[in-house]
Simulated scan of single mutants.
Amino acid sequence: MISVSRPHQLLDAGIYVDLREILGLHLHVKCEGFNFAGSVKLRTARRLIEQARTNGDLRPDSVLLESSSGNLGVALAMVAASTGLRFVCVTDPRCTTLNLGLMKALGAEVVMVEHAEPEGGFLAARKERVRQLCAADPRYLWLDQYTNPANCQAHYESTAPVIAKHFPGLDVLFVGAGTGGTATGCARYFKDFAPGVRVVAVDTVGSVNFGGPSRVRRIPGLGASQRMPLVQPALYAGVQLVEEEDTVRMCRTLAERGLLLGGSSGTVVHGAREWLNAHDPHQELTAVAIAPDLGERYVDTIYDNTWLAANYPNVR
């Protein structure tokens, strides 16, 4: 039995889905959506706030501030509500309706950036708005998931050790790359404690994280329109890029079998399948993929036929 006193204390439900029956793929998917924040970003949110408190940056009148396209914003809103803090999230129109509603329900204030910057897109616009807010009011405390080492440390301390415990014979781990916190934190852990484990980063086409050209991306979560300092390609055994059309196809294929995953999760699973087909055709490796979130937050995008027809008409 798991018993917690406050919602933010529940981190890991230890749930994995073996995809052999669903996809014919020897891959275990670690489902990170079974906590009160609904995503792996709860680990990041907790660690960012803990570090701010340890450093003495968090004062009694502080207002937490962060830029997020969705899941981290919800996680920070939940931790803030659970610990009696104020939180303001700067987001953009790609944030799903449900994520916006969840942040507001949890007491967060939401600031919407309507226009993308010519260089750096919505991410650059959100960060500039954060800087403006900080300059106007010293109470604002920007946690800065993009450069804060606590982002990586969260996954070095909790995500990777849990996977290593459950899969002592692990050969390869697939992790999505957004800010780079999860991928780099896990890669550093396995480099230190199990160097034989390969960590493969999965990113979306149109992200500039690994030097590719920027392109419009419609699914929030993975990828970035500016290079993320926490992304460390030298630590990863490989990088797998996924087209958003393939993300949608994978999400819908899994949903047809009863497994409703989020956009980032669909991206990671598709990338893992492509990598395993190329590098493990006989399915001999022990492989795990981190699924950052579940799919209910995408019912008005990936799982909506009207949205699909408007954005990806060739996907069926």
Rank of each mutant, 00 (worst) to 15 (best):
G14F: 01
D18G: 11
L19P: 06
Q9K: 07
K30I: 06
I22Q: 12
H8T: 04
A13D: 01
L23Y: 12
A37P: 09
N35W: 03
G33R: 08
G14C: 02
L27E: 14
D18V: 14
L10E: 00
S39I: 06
E32P: 08
D12L: 04
G24L: 14
C31I: 09
S5C: 15
H8N: 15
H8C: 13
S39E: 12
G38V: 12
A37E: 13
H26T: 12
G38Y: 05
V40H: 13
F34V: 01
G33A: 06
L10G: 02
G38S: 05
E21N: 14
S39T: 05
D18C: 07
H28V: 14
L23C: 13
L23E: 12
K30S: 05
C31Y: 04
G33Y: 04
E21F: 04
S5D: 15
L25W: 11
V4I: 13
L11M: 14
V4S: 06
H28S: 15
S5L: 14
H8P: 05
I15Y: 01
P7K: 12
C31G: 05
L10W: 03
L23G: 09
H28M: 12
H26P: 10
I22F: 08
V4H: 03
K30T: 04
R20V: 10
D12K: 02
